[in-house]
Design a protein around this nucleic acid. Sequence first.
DNA 1: GCGGGTCGCTTGCAAAATGATAGTGACTGC
DNA 2: GCAGTCACTATCATTTTGCAAGCGACCCGC
Lengths: 145, 145
Amino acid sequence: MTGEKEILGTCPVDRGLTRVGDRWSMLVLRDVERGLTRYEQLRTSLGIAPNILSRRLAALTEAGLLKKRRYSQRPPRDEYVLTDAGCDFLPILMAIGAWGRKYNGAGALSQHFDVKTGGVVRPVVVDANTGAPIGSRPLRFEYPD
Amino acid sequence: MTGEKEILGTCPVDRGLTRVGDRWSMLVLRDVERGLTRYEQLRTSLGIAPNILSRRLAALTEAGLLKKRRYSQRPPRDEYVLTDAGCDFLPILMAIGAWGRKYNGAGALSQHFDVKTGGVVRPVVVDANTGAPIGSRPLRFEYPD
DNA sequence: GCGGGTCGCTTGCAAAATGATAGTGACTGC
DNA sequence: GCAGTCACTATCATTTTGCAAGCGACCCGC
């Protein structure tokens, strides 16, 4: 489906986008996170064409973000659950969501709340080493060579 | 070029992806961050077809992530620079890069360093309220309605 | 045991996006 | 003039997407 063969440059962003770099894939992951793990649930929630959904699910499975889980033997039916790689991608979706809210956020939007504190979650990308938000400190870019 | 008219659901992720949800757009932003702001620079760096690059630049400009800046009056030539919205998107690219490094990172990859500390930047998405990485605490999803 | 109904898809075909290649216009520098 | 650079546009083939219809394997009611 996807070629899976890529020349693979030195850019990690490119590497990441090779696996999930399209709208539907990300929206599928978002819905799976919300508990919509079955084909029909995803199809109706997203309003996506069935052949496209099949292809996205196969690509995401192939890419290692989702895996199939049999939830009924007879009739044989599978649902799609997040792998570790898939779970690790979710924070990125939240960051995209935060950006979307800020710059395209007119009207009422869905939100995440921290169960313990009850507060709204405000996703920010920080450098784990310094704790400082990315963009607040000067960075230097370095090529491997 | 892009329809620009969307029904706009209640999901902020969807809102975000409406503006940048494709591979080339993100790679363009990445390159602009690296200082490749001119058409020819972008085209040769990305290996993208000129018509596609034109369309992406127009879409990103329309979407408010880039703006044109005249750098030569005669001959009239523009370069593309990041707007505030564009700059705010960069941390997301770094998060995608971190994910790509982790799950698709064989071989030598380019990296960001903190100029002050000299250390490698490790982008993580945290909740600004608690400081805890997204995924480390239980969250609740809530629809507007 | 036959006629729905659900679920998870596949198939066929039209429409839209992408991509390769060639060309164009406005210059500059010689 | 004449070559060269830069930022594109135009044309067309290829690829991807999307819609609508159908299909196979069941289950459920009668």
